[in-house]
Design a protein around this nucleic acid. Structure first.
Length: 520
RNA sequence: GACCGGGUAGCUCAGCUGGCAGAGCAACGGACUUUUAAUCCGUAGGUCGUGGGUUCGAAUCCCACCCCGGUCACCA
């Protein structure tokens, strides 16, 4: 949408004429006419402040039966209006909920009557009056004074809310178009209370995790988003450029390497809740920018991290609903501890029915090809195992399952397993078919780390764009000495999806990425 | 990236065997001082995603493109 807006103009018109122009939808022209009328009356359409005594839900809660005369002063957005001439009922809405207000002509000043007639759905108003219960039983404010806080110049796509006999709210002809909802999230939030609820839950989850980690003595830190080298995960990065340094920079794909440097520096328990950026495809479980919790704890290994993972997720679930049984995508997921724990190769044996560890690469390839993957010929043993795991095992795991002891080639930042150096002390938590947590005993041997980085560099040279780069400064940090450390990454967006029963990541990200809107 | 579905009034949608572009809600005018999907009477509202083509005539058929969703592929 490109508009001409030089020197106070909009589409070549003085801005006031723009609102009144015939091309505007009628509701916008009407609202502008009301705005002018308000101005004539000397009523400011955009006020500066208001002091409510309560939010709408707590105002409602102050009413007790037979308790007439409770006076409240509240503010909110006009969500419905039933005008009966000399009186009118309306609902105000805010973050907490909605509350009915009753305008009675005889209760209002002459000016307030005029203002009331000029109200539109979507306007922000403040009212003051006493609570009472209507004939039909709804607690309502009898408005005695009215203040316009902000005029709405554009009709919100408000539906009509029907409250059925069993107390359910049904919205008729609401705002459902997915594309418009994401592009105009403000309208989505304004009109769909269940969308607001998702993001309030998201905030509760994050603060529960933060509170838990703070209690456990973890220090919250911030590490760079702009990095000269990227690392800590397998992914392609976004690149950018710093002008005055004249230097290429990457947006982080993970904060892992920076956090572990802090443990070297004796900040022995650290965490960060951070946006990561990965230059990859977009689908139901992937947004190019997403939020991840990473934490590192000195003297711990992956066994401790398994407990930590269980604690964090159950803590978050309890903060949301007080329950550990959550319904997700049509089935019940039981988050109660302890979670099932199963070694990686045993999981493949259980669900795939063969011993992948002793199978040679050709056999793995045959099996992957047999499952209809045409690209199997070009895949390395590591990638084949990855495919086998995600095709045969992940979809089967509904309740949280700790899958541990991954092949070491898949885990260049994890310590070799004690007594079995072909495996790494690494685990993932799979819930409802998707990966939620990734954790390991952190590799702290600088010599081993250098060799693992070197292998990654070789793979990169062989064409693997997602292989990691050799971060010499990180190895130097390890040379100073990283204590034995357990680390864990938890995908916040996916956790929110799980706990709010949303099947796409876009429903839990306020502003998911969209293509340019060139459809008009 | 491939295939499928979708884009029509401010919102939710119908119209798609080519023949004057429709409904409900919202809006506007009127009636109604305890309504609640308020009700009743009346009015107005559209580059049918964009561009091209076929046709006497295209929302409808054909081609290209844009955007959204789904499935698959890619990707932790």
């Amino acid at each position: 949408m490109t508009s001409q807006h030089s020197s106070g103009q909009r589409d070549g018109l003085p801005i006031r004429d723009w609102y009144a122009a015939a091309e505007r939808p009628k509701p916008i022209r009407d609202r502008y006419a009301k705005l002018e009328k308000l101005t004539e009356l000397g009523v400011p359409a955009y006020s500066y402040s208001f002091d409510p005594t309560d939010d709408l839900t707590s105002a409602l809660g102050r009413y007790e039966d037979d308790s007439e005369g409770i006076r409240v002063r509240v503010a909110g957005r006009l969500e419905s209006l039933r005008d009966m001439g000399k009186s009118a009922f309306a609902h105000l809405g805010d973050r907490s909920g909605r509350l009915q207000v009753y305008f009675r002509q005889d209760d209002l000043s002459e000016l307030d009557r005029e203002i009331r007639k000029l109200l539109d759905l979507g306007d922000w108003i403040g009212v003051e009056g006493e609570l009472f219960r209507t004939r039909t039983g709804e607690v309502t404010i009898r408005v005695e004074s009215l203040e316009l806080l902000a005029k709405s110049m554009r009709p919100l796509p408000l539906g009509k809310t029907e409250v059925t006999d069993d107390g359910e709210s049904v919205v008729h002809s609401g705002f459902a178009d997915v594309e418009s909802r994401y592009r105009q999230r403000y309208a989505d939030l304004a009109v769909n209370p269940e969308v607001r609820a998702v993001f309030m839950t998201r905030a509760r989850i994050i603060s529960a995790l933060r509170a838990k980690l703070d209690r456990e003595g973890y220090l919250e830190v911030e590490t760079p988003v702009l990095q000269p080298l990227y690392g800590g995960a397998f992914a392609r990065p976004f690149t950018t450029h710093h002008n005055s340094l004249d230097r290429k920079l990457f947006l982080r794909i993970a904060d892992e390497l920076y956090l572990k440097r802090l443990v070297v520096g004796q900040l022995d328990r650290v965490y960060e809740i951070a946006k990561n950026f990965r230059n990859e495809g977009i689908d139901r479980t992937h947004n190019p920018e997403f939020t991840m919790l990473e934490l590192y704890r000195a003297y711990a290994d992956y066994r401790t991290m398994m407990d930590t993972a269980e604690e964090l997720v159950t803590e978050a679930a309890l903060a949301v609903s007080g329950e550990l049984q959550v319904s997700y995508d049509g089935h019940i997921v039981d988050l109660a501890r302890p979670w099932a724990r199963i070694p990686f190769f045993e999981a493949i044996e259980n669900f795939g029915g063969f011993d992948a560890r002793s199978a040679d690469t050709d056999e793995l390839r045959r099996r992957v090809q047999g499952a209809g993957r045409s690209d199997a010929a070009g895949l390395s043993r590591t990638k084949l195992l990855d495919v086998i795991f995600s095709e045969w095992v992940e979809p089967e795991l509904v309740n949280p399952t700790i899958v541990f002891d991954y092949p070491i080639e898949m885990s260049p930042l994890a310590k070799p397993k004690r007594g079995d150096p072909e495996l790494a002390e690494r685990f993932e938590v799979i819930v409802a078919g998707t990966e939620l947590v990734n954790a390991f005993s952190e590799l702290n041997d600088p010599i081993d780390q250098w060799e693992r980085f070197s292998e990654q560099v070789a793979q990169r040279a062989a064409g693997d764009e997602e292989a990691q780069t050799l971060d010499e400064d990180y190895v130097r940090a390890l040379e100073y000495g990283l204590p034995p450390t357990g680390g864990l990454g938890l995908g916040i967006d996916r956790l929110v999806m799980l706990l709010t029963d949303r099947s796409t990541i876009r429903e839990v990200i306020l502003y998911p990425i969209m293509r340019d809107d060139e459809s008009d």
